[in-house]
Computed example of a mutant assay.
Amino acid sequence: MIKTGTHNDLTDIAGVTVGQSVDETARTGVTVMVAERAMTAAVDVRGGGPGTRETDALAPGGLVGQVDAIVLAGGSVYGLAAADGVCAGLGAAGRGFALMDTPGVPRSPIVPAAILYDLANGGDKAWGETPPYRALGLQALKAASDRPVELGRAGAGFGAMAGTDPGGTGSASAMTSDGYTVGALVCVNSFGSVRIPGSDAFWANPFEIGDEFGGVRPPHGHRFGAEDWGAAKLNPGARENTTIAIVATDAALTRDQARRLAVMAQDGLARAIRPVHTPFDGDVVFAVSTGDKVLADPEMVTLARLGALCADTLTRAVARAVFASAGR
């Protein structure tokens, strides 16, 4: 029986903190994962319309391969500015990459980011030349802690929609019998639906631990058509739908191994959302390794186990996001 961590969220990974901020008037927000020290990271992009920053820095053969923080934001392209605020805050604290310490030369924080589209959700977006995202990013950074992550209408998921259901921010964790912990954090703004057509049950229901997202099961013998997408959005627009996520583990991974973790974790979205990775979505999954625990031999088998568990945990996090947003 898989067990969750203490909080059942990403902060169950030691050394990982999460901060969130929202602008209720604009119906948008920012979620930031902050690494207490630089951590190995990688990314996998599957959607047809992604919006990202600094993901090339995580590519194989790059100079750095580690991150100080990862930003998930609403606001479409405007939301990428949230990473500016996070960079400013981390730089002021002396965080970041430098080939050598040079007096008077600031370090360069490595802060990849991904955004979702919430511009047409009814919030006041008449911000002219001063979108709120830089300030929201800095606010989320300052709020970062290892306290339980607020789920539902919070952070980057504040103004999101999961198909025609309210979307939101979700998180979950799991622990292996031999001492590894994995966690997932997701902001769900998908074109596809998270619920089985004709039912209140989540696609994720086979992976639920306890009643963490309501315990609803589909009726016995329930059937649906192969192209019945249930509560998917009726009029999807290009770049208007996205699920953005972070998975993390305390296992020590190389950049290539972290990339495999991100690739495998994408299957968690496929289990929780139907359809997924469409031309209308910008689905992105980051993977982070704190490096605290040596990868047990045989390494590739252990990596496969962790990748599968990250996928399952991300599946649960998606359902937890929508479950926590219901009625809000």
Rank of each mutant, 00 (worst) to 15 (best):
P197F: 05
C187H: 00
D200K: 05
L116Q: 09
G168D: 11
S76L: 10
N8W: 04
D56I: 04
V276Q: 10
Q66W: 02
F202I: 02
G91L: 00
R195M: 13
S289M: 09
V247K: 11
V86S: 02
R223A: 09
L185Q: 02
G159D: 08
A98D: 13
A265K: 01
E212G: 13
A265S: 15
I196N: 12
L10F: 06
I246S: 09
L116H: 07
V149T: 04
Y180V: 12
Q257E: 15
S21P: 06
V34F: 04
G128I: 05
M161Y: 03
A296M: 11
V149G: 09
T243S: 14
D101K: 02
A41L: 11
G61P: 13
G167N: 01
G48W: 06
R147F: 04
V67C: 08
A144I: 05
C310Y: 02
T55S: 14
N235A: 15
G51C: 11
L269N: 09
W127D: 11
L151V: 00
F191P: 06
Y180K: 03
R27M: 14
A201I: 00
D12A: 14
Q266L: 06
T176H: 12
N189A: 12
D9R: 00
A73G: 10
D267K: 09
P112W: 07
